[in-house]
Each structure stands twice: as structure tokens, then as C-alpha cells.
Amino acid sequence: MSLFSYIMRRVLISLLTVFVVVSITFFLMNLMPGDPFIGNKAVPKAIKDNLYAKYGLDKPLFERYLMYLGNLAKGDLGMSMTYKNQKVINVIKQAFPVSADLGIRSLIFGVIGGLLLGVIAALHHNGPWDTTATLLAIIGVSIPGFLIGTLVQYIFGFLFSNVIKDVFNTTYQLIPIARWEGFRYTLLPSFALGFSSLALTSRMMRTSMLDVLHQDYIKTAKSKGLTPLQVTWRHTIRNAILPVITVLGPMTAAIMTGTFVIEKIFAIPGLGKFFVQSVQMYDYTMILGLTLFFSTFLIFMNLVVDIAYGFIDPRIRLAKGKA
């Protein structure tokens, strides 16, 4: 019952947020200085009127807003202004799976690697493992994604392949540095994109583990004569992992924005690359559509994480009469 109201509350906030984003995006776009069709060239008035009518720009602002909402409800995000006869929604359908694939790989790499590292670091507090993990974590949050991307590209594409060329006399690339054509191609971008998540997760998990290790119930667990493995697994990790779950939302956001540069660097035909292109070409409908899509996606992911947290933590799941 209470879990139900918790979920309802989250869903409501999320819906409200989507609505706010849609409105903000729409009005911001209409605040834009100048005119989307003029650009550098002078366009005859007749053509301009035609274009305005075609895109409904001749109607009053509020009417256009309602129209826009109506179209959104139908899943229509409009036509791209730079790609001839391309619907924005079709671009998303075509490119998003690639980005999602890359994102999921990076997330799995980052989260699992980070959890492992965080646990090991906390269990060897102040030892060499701890130092390594802390260092890696701090480097991970300090290196911009484009630097890691470019760096691994340089290492594998040039240093490494030059060695292979010298030794084996072949230009075959075991780990390719660009495009998206099979498992081997996913390794470097997933690493570059997931590295900061790995750093963040390991840092969070380490802090959380150290916090739990000082709790009284760990003493209770030890006083039962459980083995260190049992204490660590059943009592420490199970409790320490809860707060880490909450960063999965922001982490998804980080990974998503990360795809903008990583896809550009590795020439991956994902949605991030389209987004950057549309920004550079001022393709307004595309920017609008993709912004909405990204926002809704993230809000949805946050919702999923929140609900998952509610199911996992008995204190939320079973909270009685608490709003």
C-alpha cells in the first residue's frame, strides 16, 4: 500500500517534470533570435510564407504550443530541417539503439568494475589496494571523456598498431579504434565512456562500505561468529550497495551526455552524434526533438531507479503511514 503511494508520487513528479521540460523547451526555442529559415541567404517572401505555413509558424504562440503538445502526444516530433524528408522520430528509432547498446555496455563495465574496486578498497582500508582505487577514482573523475577517448585511440590506433605492423607485418587491428561493426569495435568506446562511471561507483561504494563497517550491526554479525566472507557479503555489501543504487540515475545521465563526444571520436552512428551535428547545424526541430527525447529518457531512468530502490530497501518498501 505504502509502496504503491511511493511509486505513484514518483510517477507524478516525473510526469510533471516531463511537462515542465516540454514547455521550457518550446518557449525557449521560440525565444530564439532571428529566424530559422533566413540564415545567410535572403529568401523571397512568398517562399518564406510558404515555409512558415508548412511548419505552422504563422499561428499565434499559444496555439502553436497546443498544437505542439498535440503532436507530441501522437509521438510526432516534426521534420528535420537539415535532412531532407527525415522525421525526427525516425532518426531516433534508427540511431538510439546504437547509443543504448554503447551506453549499456559502458554502464555494466563501470558499475561492476566500480563495485568490485570499491569493495576491495574498503576491505583493505589504507592499504595499497585502497590507494590504487582512490587514485583511479580521482583520475577517473578528473579526466574528461574526450581525453580518455582520444588517448586510447592514440594508444591502440597508432602506438600499438605500429608495433604490430613492425612485428607481424600486418595492418590488422585487433581492437579497432573507430566505427561500430562488431564486438571488437565496442571495446574502446565502452571503456572510454564507462571509465568515469567506474571511478564514481568505486568511490561511492568505498565510502558507503566504510560507513557500514562502522555500524553496530556489523559488530553484532561478528559476535555471531560468522566468517569474514559472510559478514562482508550478507551484512556489509548488502547494506552498502543501497546508496550506490541512487547514483545510477545521474550516472545514466553522465553516460548519455558522454555519448555526445565518444560517438563523435569513435565515429559511431548513434544518437549523440546526430545531436552534436544538429547543434552545429542549428537544426531546430531536431534539437528540440532530441532534447525532449533525452530528457524524457533520463527522467524515466531516474524513475526506474527510484522505484527499484523502493523495492530493494525494506525501510521504504514497508514504511507505514509515511508520505
Partner: peptide, 12 residues
């Protein structure tokens, strides 16, 4: 232990 509020594992 002294404090029963903190001595039991909250997720078990």
C-alpha cells in the same frame, strides 16, 4: 549490545 536501534541489520 547497548543500542538495539543500531545493532540489528536493517535490511535483513
Amino acid at each position: 549490545f547497548q543500542d538495539p536501534m543500531t545493532s540489528l541489520n536493517p535490511t535483513m
